[in-house]
């Protein structure tokens, strides 16, 4: 298990209401790690993580600019809440937390922000 995966597993263990966590390198287009709890399919989590660069962005201000990277994003659907946060000082890295729809969204985002901060500081 890599250091990143160890850190992600530890973060998931601290948050009983969270179903999965993943980390994506947006520049390389790679999912660096996925940790799931229970029966959550890892492929589904991976697919959502791969969308992180598209979702953590805002439309450009000037017409010819690229989309602007955003610090965090939130997606809700009938079943799930996906929260995304960019790792401070390493904005290519985005962590994603997945929880059931009835979770406390504010707590999920706060927890994910802490995890992103920890990953930014390194081991």
């Amino acid at each position: 298990m890599t250091e990143l995966e160890t850190a992600m597993r530890a973060a998931l263990d601290r948050a009983p209401g969270v179903a999965a966590i993943a980390c994506m390198d947006g520049r390389a287009g790679l999912v660096l790690g996925v940790c799931v709890r229970g029966q959550v399919p890892a492929e589904t989590v991976e697919l959502a993580a791969l969308s992180a660069p598209d979702l953590c962005s805002a439309p450009p201000i000037a017409p010819d600019d690229a989309d602007h990277p955003c610090p965090s994003a939130l997606v809700t659907s009938e079943t799930w809440v996906h929260a995304y946060a960019r790792v401070p000082d390493r904005p290519d890295l985005v962590v994603m937390g997945l929880a059931e729809r009835d979770t406390n969204v504010g707590l999920l985002r706060a927890w994910l922000g802490e995890v992103a901060g920890q990953l930014g500081r390194g081991p």
């Binding site: 697919l47 969308s51 979702l55 994003a73 939130l74 997606v75 659907s77 009938e78 079943t79 996906h82």
Partner: peptide, 17 residues
């Protein structure tokens, strides 16, 4: 994008820079 992995999306929200 969300519909492709998460089913019918309710909302997409981003914190702006």
């Amino acid at each position: 994008v969300v519909a492709a992995f998460g089913g019918a999306p309710e909302i997409v929200a981003v914190t702006l820079p």
